[in-house]
Structure formats: C-alpha cells, structure tokens
C-alpha cells in the first residue's frame, strides 16, 4: 500500500482519492462489490432482455415499422393452437417430473446399497447420456423409432408379436418419444443428486431404526426420505421449469412443424410465431404468458412442499 501511494505524483493528502480507496475497505460497500459481477450480468443478460420482451409484447415489430398495438398480442394468445401447445407441454411436464424423480430415486437407493455390485460402473454408464447433445441423441432416437418395419423399435415390436408403429405420427407415441428422450438423457444426473444426498445419511440412524424393529418401508419413510427430500423438491422444481422450457426434444423429431401439432410445445410455438412467422411481438406475448404460468406453478409447488416456511 505504501509503495502504491508513493508512486503517485501528487502529494497525498486527505483528498478525494484516499476516500475512494477507503470505500474499497468499507464493510458496507465490499459485499456489493463482490456480488457486482452477478448483478451486472443479471441486469444485462436477464433483466434487460426480460424488460424488452415485456415491451415488445405490446408492439407489432416489422423492419422499419415498430408500433404499439396495446393488448392485441395478448388477446390473440389464447387460441386453440396455444392451448394445444400448453396441453402438450403440461403432459410432458407431468410425465417427466414423475419419471425423473421417482426412477432416479429408486435407482440411487439400489446403487447406494452395500449389496450392489459394480455400482461405480453403473453410475458412470448411466451418467454418459447427459454428456451428449439433444440434437445428436435425438437424431439417433429418430432412426431407432423410424417408420419403416426395419427400424429397431419396430423390429422389437415385431419380435414380441406386435404390429409396427408410425411413431412420429401419433399423439401418444409422439409424447412417448419426447419423454423417453428426456428421461434417458437426465436420468443419470438426477441419480447423482440422489446419491450425494443418500451418502450423507448416517449409518447410525439405520442401526438405531433396526434396533427399534423398523421394516424396510419404515426405514425408507422415516430415515431415507427426510434426508433426500430437499433433492426431491429441487428436482421437481428444476424439472417443471425445464419441462415448460422444452424445445429441442420436440425439434429433433419434427423440426418446426409436427403433424397435427402433436409435438408442439409452448416454446416451439414462440419460435414458430416469433421467428418463423416473423411476429416477434406475438412471440414475446406468448413468452410472457408462459412466464406467468411457470411462476404460478412453481409458487404453488414450492408452497406445498414447504419451501417458503423456512424463509419466514
């Protein structure tokens, strides 16, 4: 510090410069300086786009002609296509939330068990899908679930005596494809979360439970589950948000238009309207509506799981 000050050309007095340096050491200011990288990136990368999306949702945006159109974009949002998209997305969210919390939990409990052999190998193997890109994995899935009788999935159906399916053309099978792709991809990551939580459960508790004569279910309900409950809450929240934001899982199977809109998601609808049909104001309005939907659902979910209570 002394060195730094002595290199200054001006004689150092109790001038403004010293005050400025003092500011750095102020206990009040320092926290703000440390969080400023986050605040700044939040302001520029999140809040600004968010604000301009809100602004844009009241506009009609065309090259050289941007005008405010009041609520007309929002009036158009609630149309049959939007409801179809919202329905597809909601079904997808429900399925992925259930599959991606229950199955990883069960798998993690198995993998964490003393009697499980090769658990490290399984852990690694099950995690690998998370490293692939949705586009690459989706392309492979598309081939596996091709329309022809020669595609792998249809060959398997054939083997067990069922007739081949046109996977990408039915509402049910279409949803199956999207959910399967997402489940396959995220299973490993979610298992890791559960494993981390499980390993924190002290063995003493199980021993104590054994002494008290608890059966397997009681041990799970009263010892294991309380320990992994935060993970369950976290994963449901993340799965809900990611589910509503889903785009690629649908894109890889049908690109931007699916037959009868069976694969249309809300974000896909934003893309279709905002970019492909060049109606950015309308696209922004759909985005705002989606934001509100996610806010409400997440709030309900967090309230029900008691996440707010600890804060208060």
């Amino acid at each position: 510090m002394q060195n730094f000050l002595s290199t200054e050309k001006k004689p150092i007095g109790p001038g403004p410069q010293k005050n400025r340096l003092k500011f750095l050491y102020s206990k009040k200011a320092a926290p703000y300086i440390f969080v400023s990288p986050f605040i700044i990136s939040f302001l520029f990368l999140f809040l600004y786009p968010f604000a301009s999306a809100v602004n844009m949702s009241f506009q009609r945006v065309l090259p050289g002609q941007v005008e405010y159109v009041g609520l007309s974009n929002f009036e158009r949002v609630f149309n049959p296509t939007f409801y179809q998209a919202l329905q597809n997305t909601s079904v997808y969210v429900i399925l992925t939330v259930v599959i991606l919390t229950v199955l990883p939990m069960i798998f993690a409990i198995f993998l964490n068990h003393k009697l499980m052999k090769y658990s490290t190998f399984f852990r690694a193997a099950i995690f690998i899908p998370a490293l692939t890109s949705v586009i690459v994995a989706g392309t492979i899935f598309r081939m596996i679930f091709g329309d022809s009788d020669g595609a792998i999935a249809n060959q398997i159906l054939n083997l067990i005596g069922l007739s081949p399916l046109e996977w990408r053309y039915g509402a049910g099978t279409g949803m199956f494809l999207m959910v399967t792709l997402a489940s396959w991809r995220w299973m490993g990551v979610n298992i890791l979360y559960f494993l981390a939580a499980l390993q924190n459960v002290s063995n003493d508790l199980y021993e104590a439970a054994d002494i008290d004569g608890a059966n397997v279910w009681q041990k799970f309900r009263n010892v294991t589950f309380p320990a992994i409950k935060p993970v369950v809450i976290f994963l449901t929240t993340i799965s809900i948000i990611n589910g509503f934001r889903m785009f690629e899982e649908s894109f890889v199977f049908w690109e931007t238009s699916s037959p009868g809109n069976i694969g249309l998601t809300v974000v896909g609808y934003i893309y279709q309207e905002g970019i492909q049909r060049n109606d950015m104001g309308f696209g922004a309005a759909i985005g705002i509506v989606l934001l509100i939907v996610i806010l409400i659902i997440s709030a309900i979910q967090l309230y029900l799981t008691g996440a707010f209570k600890k804060d208060d």
Partner: peptide, 21 residues
C-alpha cells in the same frame, strides 16, 4: 423465480440457433 423466468426467456433465444441438422 424472477431469475428463472428470465432464464426461460433467454433460453428461447439460444434455442432457436441450435438446429444442428
């Protein structure tokens, strides 16, 4: 929640660009 909402919006932005094939 606001942050996740903003994430959502920004998510739409880059999703549009990764149509690899």
């Amino acid at each position: 929640l606001m942050a996740s909402g903003a994430l959502l919006l920004s998510g739409c932005g880059d999703n549009g660009n990764d149509g690899g094939s």
